[in-house]
Structure formats: C-alpha cells, structure tokens
Design a protein around this nucleic acid. Structure first.
Lengths: 233, 233
DNA sequence: AAGTGGTCTAGACCACTCC
DNA sequence: GAGTGGTCTAGACCACTTG
C-alpha cells in the first residue's frame, strides 16, 4: 500500500545530503539508523540506492560522503585521453594485463579470425582525476597487428597508436550499452563495492574497408559516469 | 575465501539456471537457501544480482523464472514503433498522462521558452510484446505546437505525428545515458521491483534550424533492455 | 584500539497469486 | 488457505582505515 520504509528514508536522506556540501561526511550508518528509527539494514538499503544514483560515495573504514556529479563521456570513436581533457579532467591509465591469448568462438567471430588464433588482450583501468572509473578490455588480432607489443606505449592511447603509427583508418562502428553488476574482481579493480550497477559497453570497430580492428569491452562505474551520444537524423 | 558468499552462490546459481531452459521456474528462495546452506538474505542477494543482469525475473506470488535475452533498442531519432517492429517484436503504448503544465527553470532552458510558459507533458509506458519496458516523458512547447492535443493520437507515434502532420524536420540531437534506481512510482508503472537499476535517457531534440522540439526523459528497465549506437569516425 | 562500512544469520510479517 | 516473493528487525562478525 504505502511506500517502502527504505524509500521514505532515502527521500529524507536527500535533504540531509543537500544541506551538507559536496564531499561532506555523512554520520555513520548506525547513528543514522538510530536517528531515523530504522534498522541498519533499512538505512543501508537507502544509502545503497543513493550510491547507485551517484549521490553518495562510501569508503570502507572511513565513512560515507556526498558525491560530486557524474562525469559525462562521449559515446564515440575518439581518444579517451582527448575526451577527458576536453572536459577539464585529468586522464590516466594503468595496465592490468597485456598478453597473447587464444581466440574462442565468440572472439573469433568478432575479429574474423579462426578459432584458436592468437589475439592480443590488453586490459587497462581508466582513471579520471586519479579515480578509477572504467575497466577496458581490448582484443586485437596478432596476425593483423604483429608489432603491437613493440609499438604501443601501454599507458598511451591505443587509438592514437593505431591511427598514427599503424596507419589504421577507423570506419563506422557499433556500440552496445547495457547495465550489469560487476564481478568482485572487476569491482576491486574499480575500487567499487560490488553489486553496484555498472555501464557495460561493447564495441567492435571496423576500418574503412569493413575489416574488424578491435573488440572492446568497457565497464564503467555507473555511479560515476554517464554517456553522451550525438544523433543524426 | 575472499569472495563474498553471495557471489559464490550466484555463480553456482548460473549453472542451475543454464540447465533449466528459458522461462523455467526456479525453486523457491527458501528451498534454494536451504539447499545451498545459506541464509535467505544471501540467496536473495545472489538472485537480485541475476535479476539486474537480466538472467532471472521474479514475480511476486508466483516464483522466479529464467529470463529471455534483453531487447536491444537503437539509440537514434527513429520511431519506437518502427524500431521494435524491425526486430520482430510487437510495440505498444499506454498513456499515463497528457496534460498542460508550467515550465520550470530547467525545462524552460531546454525548450527555450520562458519560465512559467505552458508546455505539453505526455507520459507513456512503452511495451514490447505486452511487457512494459520503458517510461517516456516528453515535454513540448504549447506555443510552438498549439494543436498537438487535437492532432496526436495518444497511443500513436509522436515522431510520426510531428514529422508528418506538423511538418517538423528533425536535425541533430544529443542523448545522455546513465544508470539510476527507479522510484517506487516508476517501478510500479514498469511492473518492476524497486531498487532495480534502470537506464535513463535524456534527449533534447532540435529541428534543422536548431530550435528545440521536445525534451524527453526515457526510463528503461535495465534488466530487459540494452541500447545500440552507430558511431561515425 | 576504536570506529567505519561490508557481509551474513535467523526470524518475522506483509503483499500478492493461485487453488 | 497455502505458498510465493518483498520488506524489515536485531544482532553478529569481518575488513579496512585512522589515531
């Protein structure tokens, strides 16, 4: 019949949160629960939703804080570095893995190679202003880009390397966007608590001849990032 | 043993779920919890994440079922009806509200009207194959479209009505995508349980002269829908 | 050592659907 | 009425951060 208690609490909490400024610390969960006359579970449910909405950030051992607004990333075939700089933020990258693996059925299909063929696998955490905001896994055919490991500065722009040194010309591409829940491993790499909604982007880029260049799987923190697409009629 | 228990349970549950077919009923939560030797809370956490991932669907009073794959919607300025039909699904619409309201600061800015000016507010639930998948709220200037209420078939395509009868030519547009948690009202209209991650799309469409046509806020069920964008270099 | 958020348990009651 | 998922409580222990 009526609204769930945790939603009523959430609504009241928004008022508290707006009176405090950005970055301000919230009282501890146990204190808030007592003040609002609810159990800690109910209070955590409300806080959990506000975190997913990007209004709060929790740091274990420290406290819960009023969050800054979400970043907005362009949904386009441009350099991550340039896109972030254009918005006045400082980009960063950290290589988690750069290895050769064997293409499975799905990957072979996407890159138009044979199952079992070697492919580069580059996994990097993307930072904005020192905060991890995304986890990007890129697969490229070794046969097509045999010199990639020597040519690519691992923390540099892959896009720049491909278009610059390797003479690749990007054509049309398709990107898929959906929400998923991060695995514990992904959450840890993104310094996020698990069971937080993420934005998952799938992309298979092609060159101007329609040949696949890369298969990319990017996982962005849903509480920190949004996307902008430019539509043409 | 650093992985949380609910994630271990989630992983095991995926196996169960894959052995059963699409649409099959899962055993009740209480039974599953006992079988896996965990509390109901832990089991529900695992199930909750699988629902968010689009792998399961829960229906109160009935049970939990293996879900069908997500729909993929184009992220473009095309008719919702046509986009769904092209994928072999049956589109549907239900009007929740069609009224005149007063523009607040934000809306006035988006539609380039004065604060306090009258605007149409059209709120509709979008269906695919009889299932509610989205909640679309559109605002248009009354001054610019004074005859809209007489001309528009409320369950018909607004896009078709604007481009057809009213002679509007759509130009470039921008769309913003982010994840949010639905309010209880929104969740109810979408027949979803609350605290489920949703995909929120904001769009302000402009005509070929750059004048604003409509301000749209579309909330899609993140467990049922994904989006596709076509990228140009 | 103290205090924070994160996970988990056992149990209760409510809301809904079907018989 | 019986059985389902949805909400909520009280309390416990763990993991992490800071003094």
């Amino acid at each position: 019949m009526s609204e769930p208690l945790h939603f009523v609490v959430k609504t009241k909490l928004v008022d508290v949160l707006e009176r405090l400024g950005e970055g301000a610390a919230l009282p501890p969960e146990r204190v808030l629960a007592k003040e609002f006359g609810v159990s800690r579970w109910t209070m955590r449910q409300a806080i959990r939703e506000l975190i997913a909405d990007g209004r709060l950030r929790a740091r274990q051992g420290q406290g819960t804080f009023v969050a800054t607004p979400k970043l907005v990333q362009p949904l386009a075939l441009v350099s991550y570095t340039e896109a972030l700089r254009a918005q006045g933020h400082t980009p960063g990258r950290e290589v988690v893995a750069f290895e050769e693996v064997i293409a499975d059925v799905e990957l072979a299909e996407q890159l138009k190679v044979a199952e079992g063929d070697p492919v580069h696998r580059l996994e990097r955490v993307l930072f904005a202003d020192g905060q991890p905001i995304g986890l990007e896994t890129t697969h490229l055919s070794v046969a097509r880009f045999p010199t990639l490991r020597e040519v690519l500065e691992p923390t540099g722009s892959l896009y720049r390397c491909l278009t610059g040194r390797l003479g690749v010309r990007f054509g049309e591409g398709e990107e898929l966007v959906e929400t998923v829940i991060a695995t514990p491993r992904e959450a840890e790499l993104l310094k996020a608590t698990q069971s937080l909604p993420m934005l998952l982007l799938h992309r298979t880029s092609r060159d101007t001849d329609g040949r696949p260049i890369e298969a990319v799987r990017s996982l962005y923190r849903g509480d920190r990032v949004g996307f902008r697409a430019t539509l043409r009629p």
